Simulated assay, not measured.
Amino acid sequence: MAELIVVVDYGMGNLRSVAKAIEHVAPQGSAVQVTDDPAVVLSADRVVFPGQGAAADCMAALRGRGLIEPLTEAARTRPFLGICMGMQVMLTHSEENGGVDLLNWFPGTVTRFPSQVDAAGNALKVPHMGWNGIRQTRAHPLWHGIADDARFYFVHSYFCTPVDAGLTVGQTVYGLTYTAALAAGFVFAIQAHPEKSADDGLRLLTNFTRWQGEFV
C-alpha cells in the first residue's frame, strides 16, 4: 500500500538531503513530503523529525509552527524517526543556550561534551564531527542488516543521557560513552545523520520505511 512519509520542516536542518535519501529507499508508490503543516503531519503514515542547530531555536520554532502537539501524537501512534536535534529535543532538558526545556517525551538530559583527550593525549574537538562507530546495545528492527559497530556520520556538540538506560539501543564512544540511539514504542532516534552515512545510513532509512513500529 502506498504511504505518506512526512519530513518535518521547522526551519532547521538539511531537509532536502533527508527527503532525497528517503525517496531513494522508500517502497514504490510511497510519497515523501517536506512540510510544516500540523494537519499533514497527523495525516502521515510515517514521520521523520530531523534537525540541526540550537535547542532554544528548535523549541521556539516548534511552538511557533504549532507542531508540538501533532508531533507528540504522531510519535505515539505511527513509526517516527528522530535525527540529530530531532533526537535531543525528545528529552527533558538541554544545558544549551543557558538551559532549555525540551519536549520531555523521555526523561533525560542533553549535555555539552566536556574537555577530553584521546588515548594519545590529544584534545578531542567539539563539535564531535565525522565518522564513528555505533555499538548496538539492544536488537531493533532498524538495525537489521547493519553490522555492530558500523560507522555513521556525526555532527554535534551535545549528547543525550536518558534516565531509563533501557531506552538506549546504540552507544558511541567519543572520549566518554554516550547514547547514540534510543527507541521505545513507535519511536527510533539517532544522533548521527543516516542520510550522510553511506550504505549503512541508507539501510537504516530503508528499514524505517518498512518498520511497523512494534518495539518494547
Rank of each mutant, 00 (worst) to 15 (best):
M1T: 13
M1H: 14
E3Y: 15
I5G: 10
V8D: 09
D9R: 00
G11H: 09
M12F: 09
G13F: 11
N14A: 12
L15Q: 02
R16C: 10
V18T: 01
V18L: 05
K20T: 09
K20A: 04
I22M: 02
S30T: 07
A31P: 00
A31H: 13
A31V: 12
V32H: 06
V32N: 12
Q33A: 13
Q33K: 05
Q33E: 12
T35P: 01
T35M: 05
D36T: 03
D37P: 03
V40R: 07
V40T: 09
V40Y: 06
V40D: 00
S43M: 08
A44N: 12
D45F: 07
D45G: 03
V47W: 02
V47A: 08
V48P: 05
P50F: 05
P50V: 03
P50C: 06
G51E: 04
Q52T: 07
G53W: 11
A54I: 10
D57L: 10
A60I: 13
A60Q: 06
A60G: 04
R63N: 14
R63K: 15
I68Q: 13
T72C: 01
A74P: 09
R78C: 13
R78S: 14
P79N: 14
P79M: 01
F80Y: 02
F80Q: 06
F80P: 15
F80A: 01
I83V: 14
I83C: 13
M85C: 12
M90W: 02
L91A: 09
T92Q: 11
T92M: 01
T92R: 10
H93A: 00
S94A: 10
S94R: 08
E96I: 07
E96H: 08
G98R: 06
G98S: 01
L103N: 02
N104G: 07
F106N: 15
P107Y: 15
P107K: 02
G108K: 01
T109A: 01
V110E: 10
V110S: 03
T111H: 09
F113E: 00
Q116A: 06
V117I: 14
V117A: 04
A119C: 11
A120G: 00
G121Y: 09
G121R: 02
V126T: 04
P127D: 12
M129Y: 06
G130C: 07
G130W: 06
G130R: 09
W131V: 15
R135C: 03
Q136L: 14
T137N: 10
H140G: 07
P141E: 00
L142C: 11
H144L: 11
H144W: 15
H144S: 08
G145K: 05
I146T: 02
F152L: 07
F152M: 05
Y153V: 03
F154D: 12
F154S: 11
H156R: 05
Y158L: 00
D164G: 01
A165P: 00
A165T: 15
G166W: 02
T168V: 15
T168F: 06
G170E: 11
G170N: 06
Q171D: 13
T172W: 03
V173E: 10
T177G: 04
A181P: 07
L182F: 02
A183S: 09
A183D: 03
A184H: 04
G185I: 04
F186Y: 12
V187R: 03
A189G: 15
Q191P: 13
A192N: 08
D199W: 12
D199R: 15
D199A: 15
L202W: 04
R203H: 08
T206Y: 07
N207G: 10
N207C: 11
R210V: 03
R210E: 13
W211N: 11
W211T: 07
E214C: 15
V216T: 08
